[in-house]
Nucleic acid binder design. Sequence first.
RNA 1: GCGGGCGUGGCGGAACUGGUAGACGCAACGGACUUAAAAUCCGUUGAGGGAAACCUCGUGUGGGUUCGAGUCCCACCGCCCGCACCA
Length: 1017
Amino acid sequence: MARYNPKDIEPKWRKRWDDEQAFLTATDRSRPKYYVLEMFPYPSGRIHMGHVRNYAMGDVIARFKRARGFNVLHTMGWDAFGLPAENAAMQTGAHPREWTYANIDHMRRELKQIGLAIDWSREFATSDLGYYRWQQKLFLDFWKAGFVERRESYVNWDPVDMTVLANEQVIDGKGWRSGAAVERKKLSQWFLKITDKAEDLLAALDDGRLKGWPDNVRLMQKNWIGKSKGLSMTFRLMDGTGPVIPENRAAIYPGPRDAGGRQPHGIPALRGAAPRAGRDDTNFPAEEGNGGIEIFTTRPDTLFGASFIAVAPDHPLAQRFAAKDKAVAAFINECQKTGTSQEAIDKAEKKGFRLPLEAEHPFLKGRKLPVYVANFILMGYGTGAIFGCPAHDERDHEFALKYRLDIIPVVLPPGEDPKTYSVAAAPYVGPGTLYNSSFLDGLSVDDAIEAAIARIEAIGAGKATTQYRLRNWGVSRQRYWGCPIPAIHCEKCGVVPVPEKDLPVKLPEVPASAFKVPGNPMDRMPEWRNVPCPECQGPARRETDTFDTFVDSSWYFARFAAARDDRPVDKGDCDYWLPVDQYIGGVEHAILHLLYARYVTRAMKETGHLSIEEPFANLFTQGMVTHATYSDQDGNWILPEEITSKSAGFGGEDCFPDELRGLIEAQLNNRTGEFWDAYREQTQSTGRFFFRDPQFSPLRVEGLIEFALIGPIEKMSKSKKNVVSPVDIIAKFGADAARWFILSDSPPERDVEWTDAGAAGAWKLVARIWETVEPHQGLLLAFPPPQSGGGVGAADGGGPLSHAARDSSPASGGANADLRRATHAAIHGVTEDIEHFRFNKAIARIYEFLATIRKAAPHPVIPENAEGIYPGPRSESGAPTSGGPGSPPPRGSGRDDTAGSTASWSLAEALSALVRLIAPFTPHLAEECWKHLGGKGLVCNAPWPAADKALLVKDEVVLPVQVNGKRRAEITVAASADAKAVEAFALADADVKRYTEGLTVRKVVVVPGRIVNIVAN
RNA sequence: GCGGGCGUGGCGGAACUGGUAGACGCAACGGACUUAAAAUCCGUUGAGGGAAACCUCGUGUGGGUUCGAGUCCCACCGCCCGCACCA
């Protein structure tokens, strides 16, 4: 029998798929389409197990949908721009382009080994001129349509990467890629106005347009957009330089003590428009508002509890005072120092600095509110100013305690007595009834909010407003390796778009050495930078910023579907292919990438490129691939491949010589310290010794052995060295086994732990399927499977088997009927499981099905000479095994007689189904089996088997019988038996009688097909 | 702090809308084959008790609803993820 050898077989079928262009996809409007897409990779150079998992999942779906009759689009490309290429240039001297494209070539070769059903003719990299030139065209269209803005603003500056980061790319005050503390810097920036679409981006999350998305991702996006309704209103200001309580003053800011001699501030006339509500950044007109301070609040009901006004350190009002008053400037400076960093923010004390201003309460004529600059007010949200109501807000409460401000309760919790209720100790933020609030008294919080807004609007002091947490998307990057932003700066005309006829703006050629210097080399290329203004022909210069790479990945799915040489995408083709039916990727992209892509899709719709607003109909977020970590006694991480383990027990199979054990134990017992305590405990609990030594060699034991400690199971990462290389795994076990295992062990949305034993188990399965199929060469020639299969719409039961009717008749009965039932149950179950992304369960069912087949068609016991069967570490280590793939050991006689005699067509049906059911998971094995059995054509083109529902129904069912809730017996009844008959049958059962003896039966619950429960006492 | 999710054998995990808990895989153990080992094949495997038939207990902890709870409700404990001074 030919031993299954993936090393030969897998490349053979991949070549065949290539030769036949099996996965080339044409736009074919006569057929139903299915677009499955996995998030495309960054070409870092090597594939990792996370890629294997991601693309294996997509491939299962793609192959499955093909078999179900869909015209499937499944593509691959490269998210190829970005900083690592420049970092590599800095370190290795290779030009970013060379580095990137060399990586792509290498990764493509590795990726192809997985055996994915991908239309490689559609491949592109975002760094291809053919891609990014159309991105420039899109940008110009967006610009024309008003989706683009450019302004000076404070930006998050990453001092290591020397670039600007979007707010979303700042994590805990650090750059998402470099991890460096982010600084504030003022720069002119390009923005895409995503906030204009905030409302629709939010609405789509809940109105059914994204019903195919996981709840948690929808929720994350909802929180990120952060809509809140409230009131924006203006507090009138007046000079507040009257009596300031000295001790209070001191407490405000223990800075340079010039309080005593401070001159009263004169308040110049305030002119100009009030700061606009809804502003989303820190860019302001030079002159701030006249009428007062505009604030935003979601709790206008608490206006009567207001006791102060606070503005952000960046607020223009604060800035203006800072310009004149060193103490203010010093305070602001201090705020900014502590402000930007991480969640120390959380513990940071609330601090304020009193400005010589007072605000007038809108309803209480005499009431004056002091105005502070406060470190906890964010310029980026709302208007950068608030009124403080210490009684009903945690932060305001803390602030008021510190600066001895009034704490006036205005909301009375249900059941509290207004005379005794106090908020001195803690604010109350829950629902209740208004009091101490004039015309709002007696109203609920919700009603009072409405009433207060109405009154403020009536007196013209403000209006109802909606705020979003979401900021506009800064897309400028001061980098070379990205898509150039097609704009020109002219002294006379300002910033003008590059005319379309002048597109593309190609990245200039720069020498690799240019990257030794930090910053953007394009800034240092006058010959490229200096161009005539397209409008006035005067001297002008090119924009040297390039796009954030999230722009690149925001429309690539459309380009895959409809690339053209003369436009970004073909709308007609997009109308057929889009939206993506199934998008698969990591949950780490739940917010950034997915939100941007949703926005860009809307923008493309409005500029006439697409007809849809939501790009991804169904989204699946897969878990990570994890692995145990190993470390040595110095705390250094160790690669899994360097680890050997030996049984610590006696007489184990691990061939661990007793005399060595003595030496090991002696060494262990002599040592003290944390590592050795942990090691001894590990040996106890696992029953094994772990060593750093890829091929455990007894000679090294004496003093030279290195012990290894197992650490926590974590996401595979280079820094912890807990990585296994997909290429090594494929070389060892084959791609099919790798695909099988990575999908078999855990539900796809959860993390999966890669273990060598599991991978070896998957390999065993591959071999066992071959071994089961092998004796039945040509079986399908005698009993061809139906070609009608499970096409679209022909779901389960849709494919009548010509011979099915014959054989499912009771006459055929017996073992055949059981096998047939198992076959159709497996088809039904696996189909459902794949549809619902339950790959682990689908695989469990295949195991069960295989066991049934093997019972029905016993296979001869395995050959005398099976060396090399298991391609594990042993054979890896050198000596080629005897025989080898080319010369299979002889395998008994008479194996061909099966097709004609022993095997019935029901076995043919079972094997034919089995092979097609495994095809999405282990495509190479499936092709080999299909060919061997005599299947027609390639199995990747074969129709999905259809389950005959009639065979799923059992005539008899086994029902458990409970007495008082405890299972006491089982009865077998006809499936059609009515409740009464079942009850009678159950009560008559001997075991049941035993337990009901002497008791009175009070009630009998019969759940048809499920259970019988007898209540007796 | 706010929001969301999850706790089931030695391990990964099954269990449809409440209906036989532990499918399937891994590991472990026993047996067959082998000079031997590996590989392969067959079997056992939640815990406790019993010679056996069987019995008792068991889904993080404590209560509750129900004929019946891993599943529903309340409280608590633990872990994971997202957001984090968003007014």
